[in-house]
Design a protein around this nucleic acid. Structure first.
Lengths: 221, 221
DNA sequence: GTAATAAGTTAGATGATTCTAACAAAATCA
DNA sequence: TGATTTTGTTAGAATCATCTAACTTATTAC
């Protein structure tokens, strides 16, 4: 059996390794806000359980078993977020903390029911893909998304997802009426700080800092 | 702060003390399937926190603070059960184990939303009262319910609640189409084992053992 | 009203999850 | 390349929630 604590380590590791494929004890420690020695011994334990490849002074990797398990936790998290938004009327900026707790519920029937009631969604309210029941992630189109900050003047793109969303960022986007699916046109880019002036829907000219643009994943129209 | 474990002790104590007002370490130990010494030390801890009145060799009682806290956990449990049945389509026999986990979620907004979506229900799917936001329980009519096993031949009653329901009992009731609200007529009582033959809705003559009748709470029509 | 049984308590151990302090290895910088 | 900084590891302690074994108090049964 796997504890909630262990689940949290797996999930954090899954997130950290999604790009590079590996992560350090230090990164994991910072991500979880848990001291390095604690992380170190947990890694040994997860290695014992066949979920992590751990060797002294080497980067951490999830085993296939660990990856699958982590993806299934992420699946529960993202399904929950979608359920909270679609069926309970929460805002996309409110659901993370609740999902963080509900993802640990042990009840296949519960998540099965959510999935069914939602019509088997492929993405969560922030545009992130929901892993399937086998822990497989639909990366096909997702990985093709680019950052708004990498677009050029004159580009027109569709806002597809928010990466590493925080409450604050989501509230900011709410305040600007910037929702998933919006068609965004890059009107100009300020050379000094790389801030963008964009237009979309009812907004003729909105200024977005580079820090914001870096978090918005878009697809060329 | 109070841990999930502590919440479970409080809840069990609340259930045990609901009738007599007090409970023994031994009863609590059996209820939770946790050995007496463990229960004993937990009682000392909860006494430290002002939730339980504990004195050596004396019966256990919840303090007012403990009662309120326990009732609020029961509230979360019962609201969840109602939500699972009403909004997600689960059967009343399936919801206990899920609610047992969800009751520990820390998110006032989450339960607030459930309550709102359900239209502020007063009872759960098994007919038990849902404590209000202040931990007050609507006992007015609930305590007036009597057991079906205490009825006489010829009595006609309404099935209002199931006490201490188990999955097995609920599945049994499902199999006999016996649902809350059913008007039940006691046709005869077998003197030997006190089993009852009753009629209700489409059923002309169903035999119910005393063990079953003892769990069904009814109100005279 | 003792003797036997049940219930309650104390003491000490274990495993999980965390920490700090101290040391070792790797990476970076000058 | 050698010194410094960062990262990783080991050792040892703390807390929580649990246990078993042994002892004490209360209750029940003759």
């Amino acid at each position: 059996m796997i504890s909630q604590t262990e689940e949290n380590y797996l999930k954090a590791l899954w997130n950290l390794t999604s790009t590079k494929g590996e992560a350090s004890v230090n990164e994991l420690s910072k991500q979880l806000d848990i001291k390095m020695p604690t992380v170190n011994s947990m890694m040994k334990r997860l290695a014992e359980k066949g979920l992590v490849n751990y060797e002294s002074y080497k980067p951490l990797k999830l085993t296939d078993k660990g990856k699958k398990l982590a993806a299934l936790i992420i699946r529960k998290h993202r399904l929950t977020e979608m359920y909270l938004v679609e069926k309970m009327g929460f805002g996309w900026e409110e659901v993370h903390d609740i999902a963080e707790q509900i993802e640990h519920i042990q009840s296949p029937a519960f998540f099965e029911k959510m999935d069914e009631l939602l019509g088997y969604p492929k993405i969560d309210p922030h545009g992130s893909p929901i892993p399937d029941k086998n822990g497989k992630v639909e990366t096909e189109q997702y990985i093709r998304y680019i950052k708004l900050s990498d677009c050029k003047e004159g580009d027109t793109v569709t806002f597809m997802a928010v990466s590493h969303s925080s409450d604050e960022l989501l509230k900011f986007l709410n305040s600007r009426d910037l929702a998933l699916g919006s068609k965004i046109k890059v009107k100009s880019i300020e050379p000094f700080d790389e801030s963008m002036t964009v237009s979309y829907a009812s907004r003729k000219a909105e200024m977005l800092s580079n820090k914001v643009c870096d978090k918005l994943l878009v697809r060329p129209v």
